[in-house]
Nucleic acid binder design. Structure first.
Lengths: 362, 362
DNA sequence: CTGAAAGCGCTTACAG
DNA sequence: CTGAAAGCGCTTACAG
């Protein structure tokens, strides 16, 4: 006999009951219990017995032991959530919330791990996750970028969140920044703006290129000629303030599409200094919907929200689809002429939602 | 024989090797392998054999199967991280990062779960976590408050993060808001301020009472009489702006201690409207260190940072101490005259760090 | 110093 | 329709 009371606080908890206990109580074998509780009893167990087993399990408060099940079946219903760094922005943590919610609904649980962009740590954590026999991996980035999937993940179901696999092979969920740029610019055009500044980023991340492309497409669709002079790319820490001033002093636009909310604050500041009325004299729109900023700016900033929650949610859905039906997903990812997903292959850009407030002239 | 190839992408991965494989390769029994790999081989296995086993394990790239170990030992080295809602502020997610880092260092892994303050969901998730046989629970709140521990957690090692157990029985880690109020006020006093406004919160959360208490203590320590007129408690959404104006128009202080960074923005705004120079005419300090705010405010705001990372880190440390040595921790928690922790019992307030910037007159 | 055996809780062919 | 048995990978008394 093994030590009956390991010195742990947990021992005070009520004892966990197993299918063996139920079998004894219901007067059947454990395999009958297993069959019934897994709903595999059709044509195998009499209705009466099945009913009795279910009631017994219910009344005894039976909860299956996931660990034992995992050992036996090699399916853990656990997903590894790997992130470089969570919560740099208030919204980034929402991808974890979305992922967690989807996982719960699908009967999965999330094991989360931060790596802080340290490749060695990342490998170490992936190994740890494997020891726990996770069924698949979410590889979540802090912001939309091209990612190199760690070789350690090879062969395991994986989906990239807020990033794009460099080879466009691994399913990737990310914000549709081109569409966001289009929608933002188009919103300004709908408000009657003719001379729209793109107040962008001089750092060349994906979002910058895509949003700018969306800006140009919206202009083109509206028949407004593109003017290089209206593009002002800035860096937050250096020239954002001076360039914002130049926007008003030299360019004098009727609409401004800001790369993000932080940049919008520079536009607000410059407008205030010049007594230009945002929402009255000039329309402003941006992207991010950072609560701390939108709370404070007046007039309230109209902006697009990145689909963080949705990315997490969708990623888990796709991952579980791969796990539950690997063969189908595999062939899907391989065939170029697949019917579903034909356009983007395994890539899933998600649209951003516009949050209407008061910074656009109506 | 069971189906050799379940249709899962994971099957492409290299096969997992077990102690059985090592035993065969090294020509010993599996129990010898187990003993050696768990470092329980002293006086039980010859050095030569032990060495051979280790080398074999190494060369075969053996990783123990946590699931099998858990089933056998009832110890999962997994912790349940329960949170009401992650990432409302950029910093809140840092508690998860801190917890995760501590967990990794101690050989544990985190299963995270969000409940969105839904009590029923919470119970459901706790049950799920139990099915995975977590060794203990972190019960993390979004902000410092008194918490009622769910009955479902009873009997399991648990520590509260960013909250205080209402019964002061369950170990709780939270920011030392009284000390933060003291440190902030004292910083102003050190800068020569004599007439210090407390620009606080009219919502009575813990932090408000504590920071105000710290404010009064710092005043008392410095021999500055407390003046009720200098206390201005506001609500962000309603009277913050008008009251900030009143601070300058009627009270005319030389120092202002703001409850948080968001409130500081109202003070900045009011000062600007009146051409009062922050950092030159009046000193301002606050609490939160919200990057999005401190990035934008000029002059840069001196503020105290809440120890989010540290709370997560410390909580995991205490939880693991309970798990590894339950008996000791139990007696500790019960004895009123314990030597360690005598002062606060199971409560651990953590000090906030001051981030010096340019809003205090030097 | 080393190995055979039991068992953690479950699932799954297989035999009846 | 139901049960006995094997086995997932590990640990741990126990016997030698």
């Amino acid at each position: 006999m093994e030590s009956a009371s390991q010195s742990r606080q947990a021992d005070k908890a009520k004892p966990l009951i197993s299918i063996k206990d139920i079998a004894k109580e219901a007067g059947v074998s454990i395999c009958t219990v297993s069959l019934v509780l897994n709903n595999k009893d059709r044509n195998r167990v009499s209705k009466a017995v099945a009913q009795r087993v279910r009631e017994t399990a219910q009344s005894m408060g039976y909860k299956p032991n996931s660990v034992a099940r995992t050992l036996r079946t090699s399916r853990s219903y656990a997903l590894g959530f790997i992130t470089d760094e969570i919560a740099t922005t208030p919204h980034a943590g929402r991808v974890l919330v979305g992922a967690q919610e989807a996982a719960r609904k699908l009967g999965y649980i999330l094991l989360t791990v931060n790596t802080g962009n340290d490749r060695e740590l990342e490998n170490q954590e992936i190994a740890a996750l494997r020891q726990y026999r996770v069924d698949g991996f979410l590889y979540a980035m802090m912001y939309h970028r091209v990612v190199k999937i760690p070789a350690e993940l090879e062969g395991s179901p994986t989906v990239v969140v807020d990033g794009e696999d460099e080879n466009r092979k691994i399913p990737s969920i990310y914000p549709d920044d081109e569409m966001a740029g289009y929608d933002a610019t188009n919103r300004l055009i709908q408000a009657g703006c003719k001379r729209i500044v793109y107040y962008g980023s001089s750092i060349t991340i994906i979002a910058q290129g895509e949003r700018f492309a969306g800006y140009r497409r919206a202009l083109a669709d509206a028949g407004i000629p593109f003017d290089e002079q209206l593009v002002v790319n800035v860096e937050e820490a250096t020239n954002a303030a001076s360039e914002a001033g130049r926007v008003f002093d030299e360019i004098k636009p009727d609409g401004i599409f800001c790369f993000n909310d932080v940049r919008a604050t520079f536009i607000y500041e410059a407008a205030r200094e010049r007594s230009v009325g945002i929402g009255t004299d000039v329309s402003v729109i941006s992207i991010d919907n950072q609560p701390l900023i939108t709370d404070v700016l007046k007039p309230a900033l109209t902006t697009l929200e990145l689909p963080h929650y949705e990315m997490g949610f969708e990623a888990v859905h796709q991952l579980v689809a791969m796990i539950d039906d690997g063969a189908a997903t595999e062939s899907l990812a391989r065939s170029e002429d697949s019917i579903r997903r034909s356009e983007n292959g395994p890539m899933t850009p998600l649209r951003c939602r516009i949050i209407e407030r008061d910074s656009i002239v109506s």
